[in-house]
Computed example of a mutant assay.
Amino acid sequence: MPKMKSHTGMGKRVKVTGKGKIVREQAGKRHLLEHKSSHVTRRMTGTVVVAKADTARVKKLLGR
């Protein structure tokens, strides 16, 4: 039986914390920032936990 390969694209997008939570970056902070308000861009900084509905799919792609 061959080894399970993790989805490399998903591995670049999410990180698993020490307690097993899956965190991701906020979307919308890469380009076209000039017309977005500072309030919006500040809100998009940092990481957030992946939605509960998506965790099973993400874990499967990560090979967990």
Score class of each variant (00 low, 15 high):
residue 9 G to R: 07
residue 52 K to H: 06
residue 31 H to P: 00
residue 18 G to M: 07
residue 23 V to A: 05
residue 46 G to Y: 04
residue 56 A to R: 08
residue 48 V to A: 11
residue 8 T to N: 08
residue 64 R to M: 14
residue 44 M to F: 08
residue 44 M to N: 08
residue 14 V to Y: 10
residue 62 L to E: 01
residue 35 H to S: 11
residue 32 L to V: 05
residue 23 V to H: 03
residue 4 M to I: 12
residue 45 T to Y: 02
residue 47 T to H: 09
residue 26 Q to H: 15
residue 40 V to I: 13
residue 41 T to R: 15
residue 47 T to P: 00
residue 42 R to L: 09
residue 1 M to P: 05
residue 22 I to S: 01
residue 60 K to G: 03
residue 64 R to N: 06
residue 58 V to S: 02
residue 6 S to D: 07
residue 20 G to M: 02
residue 29 K to M: 09
residue 3 K to C: 04
residue 31 H to D: 02
residue 62 L to Y: 02
residue 64 R to T: 04
residue 18 G to N: 14
residue 10 M to L: 13
residue 50 V to A: 15
residue 4 M to A: 13
residue 12 K to P: 00
residue 6 S to I: 06
residue 43 R to G: 09
residue 63 G to E: 06
residue 41 T to G: 03
residue 47 T to F: 11
residue 15 K to L: 09
residue 55 T to W: 00
residue 26 Q to Y: 13
residue 6 S to Q: 10
residue 15 K to R: 15
residue 14 V to T: 07
residue 32 L to F: 14
residue 30 R to H: 07
residue 44 M to R: 15
residue 64 R to I: 11
residue 49 V to N: 07
residue 24 R to Y: 04
residue 21 K to L: 10
residue 21 K to G: 01
residue 63 G to N: 06
residue 21 K to R: 14
residue 5 K to N: 12
residue 52 K to R: 13
residue 16 V to E: 14
residue 52 K to F: 01
residue 42 R to K: 15
residue 56 A to N: 07
residue 39 H to F: 08
residue 21 K to Y: 11
residue 50 V to R: 01
residue 22 I to D: 00
residue 37 S to F: 03
residue 34 E to S: 13
residue 3 K to E: 11
residue 61 L to R: 10
residue 43 R to H: 11
residue 35 H to C: 06
residue 53 A to M: 06
residue 46 G to R: 04
residue 62 L to H: 03
residue 23 V to E: 06
residue 47 T to V: 12
residue 37 S to E: 05
residue 44 M to L: 15
residue 4 M to C: 08
residue 13 R to L: 14
residue 42 R to F: 03
residue 37 S to T: 15
residue 25 E to D: 13
residue 22 I to Y: 02
residue 36 K to H: 09
residue 29 K to P: 00
residue 23 V to N: 03
residue 4 M to L: 12
residue 15 K to Y: 01
residue 30 R to K: 12
residue 51 A to Q: 08
residue 63 G to I: 06
residue 63 G to M: 03
residue 16 V to L: 06
residue 15 K to S: 11
residue 19 K to Y: 03
residue 51 A to P: 09
residue 64 R to S: 02
residue 63 G to Y: 05
residue 42 R to E: 14
residue 28 G to M: 05
residue 50 V to N: 01
residue 56 A to Y: 01
residue 22 I to F: 03
residue 39 H to S: 10
residue 42 R to G: 11
residue 24 R to S: 09
residue 8 T to W: 11
residue 8 T to I: 10
residue 31 H to M: 04
residue 30 R to C: 04
residue 61 L to N: 03
residue 27 A to W: 10
residue 26 Q to P: 04
residue 51 A to S: 13
residue 64 R to Q: 12
residue 61 L to W: 05
residue 10 M to C: 08
residue 27 A to R: 14
residue 9 G to A: 12
residue 2 P to K: 12
residue 47 T to M: 14
residue 40 V to T: 11
residue 45 T to D: 09
residue 25 E to C: 06
residue 42 R to D: 14
residue 47 T to L: 10
residue 2 P to M: 07
residue 24 R to C: 11
